[in-house]
Design a protein around this nucleic acid. Structure first.
Lengths: 231, 231
DNA sequence: CCAAAAGTGTTCAGCTTACACCCATGA
DNA sequence: TCATGGGTGTAAGCTGAACACTTTTGG
């Protein structure tokens, strides 16, 4: 005997999931938007999203949607809020769970752009989006900014080896501020969780900047001892 | 013509809402649990909750559930996470949106306890709960602790007039730590958003402690100037 | 008069902030 | 050789943490 009978007095609803995908170009924080070539919202800009399947958890649904769109797996993601205004979608009552994701934008397959009609946009230049997607986007950015202060998740946006100028630009483009170079480096290096490499990145300057790697083992050890990452 | 036709390929689900209600006794942080006298989960401890109605937003549903249970209105509440594991409720696929609420426990009608079979429990003494409700509770507490650091929402747990020893005990019972009395007072009073009253509370000591009031206007003014509450 | 809780300041260490010049290299 | 971005140190001010005694008053 199932317990489902206890619920028959209640209504069911569509449950969707919208993803705010953040990537870092080296200069700017960007997100991926869909120019919809299907209904509803044909022709409008929208966040990538989809519906929950009967046999998948919310996290799995988010993974599926992200992998389908980007071709990447093991994407860092975080559920941040659920949107349930009655008429947020004028066509039907749809409750939508918001996730944000952080990707290494170099790995993002460009061929998928044409396939899904997906485009990258700077976070400072987001167009009018379908339904309440502008609100969803803003909430995602707000939550990202909070989280990035206390966890080293910003690194999910960078390749394994990165330079300190890159890292600084990353934080500057998340918070849309300028940071002091000396103070930033001092703080980062004092954490003792970044390892200087022997090689330099010669892409962005003649002199070249040393690569660093994030030492996750060391970080986890420190966390176990009560350490709190803070930027 | 409705747009609903675009969604007919997708499944619908029950959407529920669970509330973690926090109250402060003067000594301890407590929450309200239901000893279920109905199915499913008859006899089990559970968080108060309910289902979303077709014509109400998530926030409205939370308000309804909180008001029905406590008899209070204008309750401070905050959505904190949505739980969607496939078998979290073994009887049916139910996606549940988690809210936490902060109430002034003095105002909480005791007659409602018997009506809803609701009981207060210290947060340090939570029994085994139905389904994934222990996980929901823990997440609520975690989010409360984060929020309370940066917003003066702890005051929602106290009456309009409160003493500094009360306020200190409040934070101690949220974080389950001891705080230094002098440092705590210094910090609080330096904020300039608490107004000393002429009257004293003689309840908890012979000498009596001065009442204070939170000056919300002043706080809002400071916030507009970029001020950030931080404890 | 005494028990019990309220109230009060100072010092030290460590962190944050502001700030300017030399270095390495490819073109 | 010069333009460009990479890399470095210090001083001043502020903030957080540690710490003990006096006051009030009802019983």
């Amino acid at each position: 005997m199932t317990k489902a009978k206890y619920y028959i007095n209640f209504k069911k609803y569509y449950v969707a999931l919208d993803c705010v995908i953040f990537g870092f170009t080296g200069e700017n924080l960007e997100t991926i938007l869909i120019k919809r070539n299907f209904q509803p919202g044909l022709g409008a800009w929208a966040l990538p999203g989809g519906f929950i399947e009967p046999k998948e958890s919310l996290d799995k649904a988010s993974e599926r949607i992200l992998t389908t769109l980007t071709g990447l797996s093991d994407i860092y993601m975080e559920q941040f809020y659920t949107f349930g205004e009655v008429n947020r979608d004028p066509g039907a009552r749809i409750i939508s769970v918001g996730y944000y994701a952080l990707i290494k934008i170099d790995d993002y397959g460009k061929e998928l752009v044409s396939k899904h009609n997906a485009f990258r946009r700077k976070i400072t230049n987001i167009p009018k989006l379908m339904f309440d997607h502008n609100i969803i986007f803003e909430k995602a950015l707000e939550q990202l900014r909070i989280k990035v202060k206390n966890r080293p998740i910003g690194l999910e946006l960078l390749p394994e080896k990165f330079t300190l100028p890159q890292l600084q630009k990353l934080y500057e483009s998340i918070y849309l501020t300028k940071l002091d170079k000396r103070n930033f480096r001092k703080k980062i290096l004092a954490m003792d969780i970044f390892e200087k490499q022997k090689e330099k990145d010669k892409e962005s300057s003649k002199r070249g900047a040393f690569f660093y790697k994030f030492n996750k083992q060391e970080y986890n050890k420190l966390v176990a001892k009560g350490y709190n990452f803070e930027l």
